[in-house]
Design a protein around this nucleic acid. Structure first.
Lengths: 339, 339
DNA sequence: CTTTTTGATAAAAACGTTTTTATTGACTCT
DNA sequence: AGAGTCAATAAAAACGTTTTTATCAAAAAG
């Protein structure tokens, strides 16, 4: 029992192929009886159009592709969740391609499996690939990089601004000696957050001190060790506050402080970035800066669809972070001595 | 500048279409020079085959589809992560379709966008749809239901066994009066866990008491209220241990116990199911039963690919849970009086 | 020296659609 | 009454591939 095609329906209904196609696609040229008859036959045979044939001919799929190297972690599922909701709303399907093989990515994009693409992937797609996509008039929105390159869209978080705002918040609590725990220096977001931190210090004319910039690599353990070794070496110069490159790092920092007998936030304020799921449950609950992930997903789909409909040119957008104040930060108090 | 097709490559290289196709697909009938020449031309023109044309003709896509109504939460991303890794390993691509529209799901499945499908969706696909898929020889693996129906695969967690093992563990700690906090009685997993719990009680000849079965609806608040009202009504008959339908519920239970001055685990043991991300960070860290999500994903892909290659018939598999002992459970102690 | 075989390439058919164009027969004009 | 419109349907072309079949010259076989 082979797959039922439009041909089978035509034969069974005693009409031509084109008539069946018209009936199925609701083109209004057929007599109501013929149409009804054909639909009934199609139903009876359980006919389902072959999407590849359909797509090959019509060139449009009503499908958007999301290309990513990973879906691990809350960032991705929040993103996918919001994108798929918005797709539903706009009458598109969402198709997530998880692969690390650039070849696969490019051939799916250029091979027209989807009407437009959202791209998030750390490695791989370079200027040349983007040029190829532009040449083919592929509509794309990037989530992980700024594109000066016109024609393509991008929606990224303003990490610089987040770093800046976080630092300003700590300053507003009365803290003057604010340390920064750096993430990975090759990552764009990481660097931007630090830049924002430095800018805020400069703006408030607080000294930028070399030893106040620690290296935590976005990991709990590394940060724990880095902070501990700082406290060992400079017991007399403990910062008022630590701004960690992300929440994981903030957690390591808090552990290290606790192990040296400092109370957070009474003795030292600590904050991170990302507002990961466990942040509100941590002890103390973490003050952090949250990225509006759902908004990013929603805007990406919106923008892409408008690009596809030629209502909008690709453009770059930046999203502001959202300060979330919880228990790990506190106005500056006179610190009790180290136990 | 329209899309480059195989025709353009043929014209440019001065050969026929079929020759180009042979060159590109490495069919070994061409002279090395011709082949090299064609490949060079294709490269120069940035030719990328149209996947729809290709697929339409050859009928195979080397793509697997994962159909789901949601990707929210850790379960899904762990699942997708493991599936995509296994796909990579086996030379397939993974394609996640997120939609609540059954129509979309069915037309993508039957419309041959993918070589095989993994299905997880709570509502929608019924016996009739499955019959249609079988008729079309679609290869499918279900993750959310047992399929007695031969021909299709399914890989589910053995929730009955998990409930049984969890209860046995609590009994092994010396607990005799074990309460169960039920989830949602329409959900398969929820019911199965409770059945396992009851079976263990029966096996050890412990009395099954009506009041010991509370209703928590898998929510923190509902459970909190349910447990609290139990403690208010039966202050003299506090269980030795609570087995909550999931970790969220366990958290609510612990809060309620604390509010009545009971210490967990010294006074009462509490455990849940799922091992959610915050379980190890909770206070106390939760004892729970973990489902092997990554294993489920891996097995699903494996099974599906073997079905596609006709090496295996669809079959049902069950995965055992994994007991994770943390701080919320303890051997039975003589309980101090209520404060 | 003709007939076969072989090797390399080209032509044509096929996949399942949609879309464009053609073909009817019935109706409406003047 | 003949030409022109119209409604309904059919036929054919097209989408971009792969695959099957055909072509044709050169080499091998007799």
């Amino acid at each position: 029992m082979a797959k039922i095609t439009i041909k089978d329906v035509a034969r069974e209904a005693g009409v031509s192929i084109s008539t069946v196609s018209n009936a199925l696609n609701d083109v209004d040229v057929l007599s109501p009886e013929t149409k009804a008859h054909i639909l009934k036959v199609a139903q009876r045979l359980n006919y389902v159009p072959n999407l590849n044939g359909k797509l090959l001919k019509s060139g449009t799929t009503k499908m958007l592709g999301f290309f990513t190297t990973s879906v691990s972690g809350p960032y991705f599922y929040k993103l996918v969740e919001s994108m798929s909701r918005q797709c539903d709303r706009l009458g598109y399907g969402l198709n997530v391609f998880v692969t690390k093989d650039k070849q696969v990515i490019m051939s799916n994009i250029l091979g027209r499996r989807v009407d437009g693409v959202i791209i998030y992937e750390e490695l791989g797609i370079d200027e040349q690939d983007i040029a190829a996509m532009k040449k083919d008039k592929i509509k794309a929105v990037f989530l992980d990089r700024v594109l000066e390159d016109e024609g393509m869209g991008s929606i990224i978080f303003d990490s610089y601004e987040s770093g800046y705002e976080a630092t300003k918040y700590l300053i507003s609590l009365g803290h003057k000696r604010i340390a920064y725990i750096s993430g990975v220096d090759t990552m764009f977001d990481s660097v931007q957050r630090k830049e924002g931190y430095l800018a805020a210090l400069r703006e408030y004319q607080l000294p930028v001190e070399e030893e106040f910039i620690l290296q935590g690599y976005f990991e709990e353990d590394s940060t724990y060790n880095a902070v501990k070794s700082y406290l060992r070496l400079h017991p007399a110069r403990v910062p008022d506050a630590f701004l960690a490159g992300n929440d994981i790092s903030a957690m390591g920092c808090i552990q290290a402080l606790k192990s040296y007998g400092y109370e957070v936030p009474q003795d030292v304020s600590v904050m991170g970035f990302d507002d990961i799921d466990i942040a509100p449950y941590y002890s103390p609950p973490l003050t952090t800066v949250r990225n509006q992930i759902a908004r990013q997903g929603m805007l990406a789909i919106d923008h892409l669809v408008r690009m596809i409909q030629d209502k909008e040119q690709g453009a770059a957008q930046k999203l502001q972070g959202e300060l979330v104040v919880r228990g790990s930060s506190h106005v500056k108090l006179e610190r009790k001595d180290r136990r």
